[in-house]
Design a protein around this nucleic acid. Structure first.
Lengths: 154, 154
DNA sequence: GGTGAAAGGTCAAATAAAGTCAAAAAGTCA
DNA sequence: TGACTTTTTGACTTTATTTGACCTTTCACC
């Protein structure tokens, strides 16, 4: 069942240019005749960040679930960086180095680099030490993943 | 529905030079075939002061609703936001609202807004709850401070 | 000044989504 | 078979929107 739903969503994603698909949790549950929370299970096990997907949603009337496929294959270099960043600790120094490199390679503009650098500074992350480097790594990973979004590069 | 009404009003605001639009609650309700109080709902959730709008109205014969888009002229407004952000907790929702507003006001580009939004997402900040909102507030403060830097805008 | 119609305002209930979490069931494998 | 992992289910929670009954303000008119 979970596999079927996974395939279904992936098929939708392929059909859609853009790599974005938006759906109703309840509708999907009805199609597959399963409980709605089954959908959440599929999303969290098959469409997590690690697998190159981004899931956004909204509750209430007019609610939806949006699944975005990140284009990680396109760029081996980014892919490698993302892997290195995962489950890692990153110091401010190393982080700044990474950002500068991204800027030099044209992934980030001067302003974007400034913003991200400001965000990963010690002063902006009021946390004790192993934690701070962990959060910094996660922030940088979020940045790298964003770089692989089609919409980001338009 | 609420989204449609929101878009409609924003379109009117853009067409109008001045950033002011005046309308009749009942007329609008009739256009969208909804109850009049729906309009109030949209106004209070989408055109609040925090979102950069001022709503004035008058009852009785010849009554009206006037919506004014407030301009964030200069750093003054940013400073105010920095103050509000300090020593505060900010949820993902509120944070996204703030970023969208900064984008609308031209302080952030579309890409910059995407980056910051990605960074303040729950998934990018693997922390327990009071802490997560605290770190998010600090990150947003760092962003606001960066916006006031001359080098950033040069 | 009193009155009634014409606005708009408020608030709570009903409805419409989606999220969470843990127990039960099913599958896997030594 | 027994232990472990994955999947399925459903009760409960949270959030967002829609709707309607009732309230307040303003104005025109007598």
């Amino acid at each position: 069942m979970a596999d079927q739903i996974e395939r279904y969503i992936k098929r939708l994603l392929e059909q859609q240019e853009e790599g974005v698909v938006e759906l109703r949790r309840n509708d999907l549950a009805k199609i597959f005749q399963c409980v709605p929370s089954q959908i959440n299970y599929v999303l969290s096990t098959r469409f997590a960040l690690e697998q190159g997907y981004l899931v956004e949603s909204r509750r209430g009337g007019g609610g939806y679930i949006r699944i975005v496929k990140l284009q990680m294959e396109d760029d081996k270099e980014l892919r490698k960086l993302i892997d290195k960043t995962s489950n890692n600790l990153i110091s401010q120094q190393v982080g700044e180095g990474l950002i500068e490199r991204l800027q030099e390679e044209g992934f980030l503009t001067r302003r974007e680099a400034m913003l991200v650098k400001a965000i990963i500074r010690r002063e902006a992350l009021p946390l004790e030490l192993p934690l701070r480097d962990m959060v910094r790594a996660n922030i940088l990973k979020a940045v790298l993943l964003t770089l692989t979004r089609d919409e980001f590069n338009q």
